[in-house]
Design a binder for these strands. Structure first.
Lengths: 224, 224
DNA sequence: TCAATAGTGTCTGTTAGACATTATGGA
DNA sequence: TCCATAATGTCTAACAGACACTATTGA
């Protein structure tokens, strides 16, 4: 947001950084130095010689949560909805940050769980909702759940992440069977003991090429 | 593309109109009056007081194929890739036109099957690929197949459309069972006789609310 | 009549979900 | 020891895919 004092940009890049906090998704917001709302989704104008994804990466890094583990464009937003930059349109990106990443210091940035998000400019509210919808919808095409976890994780943590994203409980044995069939993870020889109970083996994300065989067409999900 | 003579726009709206021709997808291109490529994806600058989707609808109508039966944003494209308008970015939309819609006359617009698409400006090539990928990926969330068919269709036509979009053969009995379970279509009392063979009953798209029950998580599709 | 296509019934191998059981640590 | 959690084996109902069959038209 370094260009806020320069002329009004025609297009901004807005970055919705998401992580998991407890059993909820959380978004990184930035304290607004001016304007009607107190918090904003981080944004900036695109710089010369910079790709849009490059801008998004830079904005994410400036939020001092490091480079996001995953980044993808959500789309273009505008249509007269108000934005902190008063730009005509905004190109929104969604980024994932592994849970447990140290919170940014200084109080300029802060994580808000989705149920606690303060009022935002209308366009940024749409952008946030669009980013969350996209993340939830991309789960079965991209390793979204894995990008929200640390590099090593227990299968219970992975299942809880899927439950968080899907918004429903999953069956443990079925989940693990599906995981085995999909060749997505490999066990490490480390274990983690969490309070009482048997320690859990740690796994890492290691997708393998598979036969493209799969059963069925799923028309179920279609009626929306 | 009425604004081509005005100042270079910072942002264009590009519209990828798709239909089915035989057993292939086809895209509507416009003859280019100038520039390196002979054909372009229809585009124009956004007009004042117009939403982006409004612009896309207008551009589609100008291509004289009527209002598309379905329209959705693909995303923003730019990143220095060349575009007929030399604009910084383009917001791309994908639209579906029912197959059998009379071809636009005059020779300015023409349908090209995906395997016969001529050379396009690099950004427009990316836009086209992105639109096709999005359509194929949205099949199970939007009634994409139905928007490519006339309002009334036979189940064989519907199955062929799914096969076209999925790029693989489907099993007839299973397809119909899945269709019945999904409550997506309802029979009309009309029949259509096509050459020899028993006439087929015509159906229409009529989604019904269903129980949210469905089996399984499909991690299969995940390994990319 | 034959050929061609529409539409349906039945069987079978696979698998999601349920349940039970074992394994292994902490209190 | 008891309890809590991890991990796995077994059973069953549901379903995808295969096959066969009937139905109905045109040639």
């Amino acid at each position: 947001m370094a260009d806020r004092k320069t002329r009004r940009p025609s297009c901004t890049i807005d970055v919705v950084l998401l992580t998991a906090v407890g059993s909820q998704l959380a978004v990184l917001l930035c304290r607004a130095p001016e304007g009607r709302e107190k918090w904003i989704v981080p944004w900036d104008a695109q710089r010369p010689q910079e790709t849009m994804e490059g801008s998004a990466t830079r904005i994410a890094k400036a939020a001092s949560v490091g480079e996001p583990a995953w980044l993808e464009q959500v789309g273009a937003f505008g249509d007269g909805k108000r934005h902190p930059a008063e730009s005509e349109i905004s190109v929104a990106y969604a980024g994932l940050v592994p849970m447990g990443t140290p919170s940014p210091v200084g109080g300029v940035y802060a994580w808000f769980t989705l149920s606690d998000v303060p009022q935002l400019a209308p366009r940024q509210r749409l952008i946030l909702d669009g980013a969350v919808t996209m993340i939830r919808g991309r789960m079965d095409q991209s390793p979204v759940a894995f990008r929200l976890l640390q590099q090593m994780f227990t299968l219970t943590e992975l299942q809880q992440m899927y439950e968080l994203l899907l918004g429903k409980r999953l069956h443990k044995a079925s989940f693990r069977r599906a995981l085995q069939a999909a060749w997505l993870v490999e066990p490490t020889d480390e274990w983690r003991s969490e309070g009482r109970g048997r320690p859990a083996q740690l796994y890492r994300y290691a997708p393998r090429k598979r036969r493209p065989a799969q059963r069925g067409i799923r028309l179920d999900l279609l009626s929306s």
